Simulated scan of single mutants.
Amino acid sequence: MRKWLVVAALVIVIDQITKLLVQSHFQFGELYAIIPGCFSLTLTYNPGAAFSFLADAGGWQRYFFTALALGVSAFIVFTLRKHHQQTRFSFALALIMGGALGNVIDRLAYHHVIDFILVYWKNWYYPAFNVADSAICIGAALLVIDSIARPQHTREKTL
């Protein structure tokens, strides 16, 4: 199980380093085009959840999402103990836990999550996100792939 905790820790470290780098080199809202017309770096703050869900809720959401992420992380550790030998499943959970805890650090330290990756095309913009968000999405996608690819008899044992 230790290797999955290391994966989660690496996600947290990479997430926090990238956020510190962006914070130290960008002003809020500043935009730097990496691939003009589709990919930029920017510094934004998100007090809510994904896609700024509940961003204007008055502050209680910070505690709610922190508690939720900590609870999910505890559940993931419990699940990893039982299923650490299932590589894809455990890797997915480790990514989700690392991403969730990376954003918890932001919520506790700054009262918002730092986002900086901006993907867009012409007038369409995907909401800014960060490494932690990416890890959560990749982990979720891997869970779906794992549930489809795993034989039926092992799916029932996972839950």
Rank of each mutant, 00 (worst) to 15 (best):
T154A: 09
T42W: 03
V113W: 02
V11D: 12
L41W: 15
V13L: 15
P36N: 05
G139M: 01
L43G: 10
Q152W: 01
I76L: 02
S40M: 02
A94V: 10
F75S: 13
R81E: 13
I34M: 03
D146I: 06
A135N: 07
G99W: 11
V77E: 00
P36W: 04
Y110N: 14
T44Y: 05
L5K: 00
Y63C: 05
N103A: 04
L142S: 04
S52F: 09
G71S: 09
P151F: 01
K82S: 12
A92D: 03
K122D: 09
F51T: 02
F51D: 06
I105H: 07
K82D: 10
L20K: 12
V77S: 02
L5N: 06
G59K: 00
G139N: 05
L93E: 01
A67V: 13
F65D: 07
A94P: 11
A141H: 00
G99K: 11
F64W: 00
N103C: 04
I117W: 08
L142N: 06
V113G: 05
H25C: 11
I148H: 02
L101I: 15
G139W: 06
F26P: 12
P127C: 00
D133Q: 08
G29N: 12
G37E: 04
I114G: 07
N46F: 05
I145W: 13
I145Y: 13
W60D: 02
H25L: 14
L5H: 05
S73C: 05
A69W: 01
Y126C: 03
A8Y: 13
P36K: 07
A9M: 12
A100C: 11
I14V: 15
W60L: 10
K157R: 12
Y120K: 00
I34Q: 02
G37I: 00
Q23A: 09
K122C: 00
A9L: 15
E156R: 01
Q16M: 08
I136G: 07
L159E: 14
Y32Q: 12
F91E: 01
L108C: 11
F51P: 02
L95K: 03
G29Q: 09
F91T: 11
G71K: 03
